[in-house]
Structure formats: structure tokens, C-alpha cells
């Protein structure tokens, strides 16, 4: 399924370019979802169906929904888009683009140095993954559990709506 791979990766790259150039947050988010979907297809074409499913469900589904919630909650609409337009002047993006292009060129050179190897198109299915995950990676799984737990607690703590407050270290200097 190389054709599938090439098409989907092209879509992913184009969608990503659209993401970083959009002014309106919702547009950018929608393009990002497209990009994630395309990457899910590339996973499929590489024989990783489980990863593709996770990509769609968690990335495109859960995480992007979080973003959309926030955008809605903060009511970021036309005004933000206008501001983004003002901020994205050529002199702002020119130098970063040059630098990142140089980085890309160097990475591609590095990647293409050894002779290309083919990938066997045999799928690694969910069974293998779960056996390995709950076998040798069991400790890592538990650690990830901790991480998610702290993420929840941290988000709940930080996200609490409080009166405007500053840390005591910053109070004397700024207010």
C-alpha cells in the first residue's frame, strides 16, 4: 500500500502547513485534525493498526476536543484572528523558517546517508502490543498512570478560577 502512504503523508504535510499558517484558532484545529487523520492512515499503511486507532480516538478525538473546549470557553473568535494577522508579518516568520529549513535539510541528509531499507508490510497487531505492554513494560505503564494522575490533579488545580493573583515573589516588582 505505498500509494496510500504517499497520498496520506502528502495530505498530512499540507494540512500541517495549513495549521501553522491559519489565523483563526478553530480553522487551525480543524486542519490539525485532518493532519492527524492522515497520519493515522500512514500508520495503517505501515502495518500499525492499533496506533492508527489510538491516533484517531485519543489525538484527534480527545486532545483536539480539549482544545476546542478551551477555544470556545475563552471565546477566541474574529478578534483573535485579526490579532494573529497583525502578528504574522514576514519579518516575524522569515528567520525562523530559514533556520528550520536548514535543520530539515541537515536531517534529510543525515537520514539518507545509509542505504535505504525496505519495510516489510506485515502488521503488528494489538495482541502483540498488549502482551509486550503488560509484560516487559509493566513498570512504564504504571509510571504513565502516575503521569496522567498528576496531569489531572495539576490541571484541576491550575484551572481553578480564582481572583487575579500573583505569586508572592512577583508582587513587589510588577504590581
Amino acid at each position: 500500500m505505498p500509494i496510500l502512504f504517499y497520498i496520506s503523508s502528502l495530505v498530512a504535510i499540507l494540512a500541517t502547513i495549513m495549521v501553522i499558517t491559519r489565523y483563526h484558532p478553530i480553522h487551525a484545529l480543524l486542519y490539525l485534525i485532518v493532519s492527524f487523520m492522515a497520519i493515522a492512515v500512514t500508520f495503517l499503511s505501515m502495518g500499525a493498526p492499533f496506533a492508527a486507532a489510538l491516533e484517531v480516538i485519543i489525538y484527534a478525538g480527545a486532545i483536539m476536543v480539549l482544545f476546542i473546549f478551551v477555544v470556545m470557553m475563552l471565546n477566541l473568535g474574529k478578534q483573535t484572528a485579526q490579532q494573529e494577522k497583525e502578528w504574522l508579518q514576514p519579518r516575524v516568520w522569515l528567520w525562523p523558517s530559514v533556520l528550520t529549513l536548514v535543520l530539515l535539510a541537515e536531517m534529510i541528509v543525515l537520514l539518507l546517508r545509509p542505504s535505504p531499507t525496505d519495510m516489510p508490510a506485515v502488521a503488528v497487531d494489538a495482541r502483540q502490543i498488549s502482551l509486550s505492554l503488560y509484560g516487559e513494560y509493566i513498570i512504564a505503564v504504571e509510571l504513565v498512570g502516575f503521569l496522567l494522575m498528576t496531569g489531572i490533579v495539576g490541571a484541576a488545580h491550575i484551572g481553578k478560577q480564582r481572583k487575579k493573583s500573583l505569586h508572592r515573589f512577583l508582587q513587589t516588582t510588577t504590581t
Binding site: 505505498p2 502512504f5 503523508s9 498530512a12 504535510i13 500541517t16 502547513i17 495549521v19 501553522i20 497520519i39 500512514t42 499503511s45 505501515m46 504574522l88 516575524v92 516568520w93 525562523p96 523558517s97 533556520l99 528550520t100 529549513l101 535543520l103 530539515l104 536531517m107 534529510i108 537520514l111 539518507l112 535505504p116 531499507t117 525496505d118 519495510m119 508490510a121
Partner: peptide, 23 residues
């Protein structure tokens, strides 16, 4: 599919993300 091709795609995506962070 060549393995390198996938990595190049990943590199392109990474660089695009980086450019986004910077701009």
C-alpha cells in the same frame, strides 16, 4: 515503503511544528 521515506515525512512534520512554535 522505504523506512527512510517515513522518517523524512516525520522530519518534515517536526520542522513544521518547530517553525510554528518559533513564529
Amino acid at each position: 515503503i522505504h523506512a527512510h521515506t517515513v522518517l523524512v515525512v516525520a522530519a518534515i512534520l517536526f520542522v513544521l511544528g518547530l517553525a510554528g512554535v518559533l513564529t
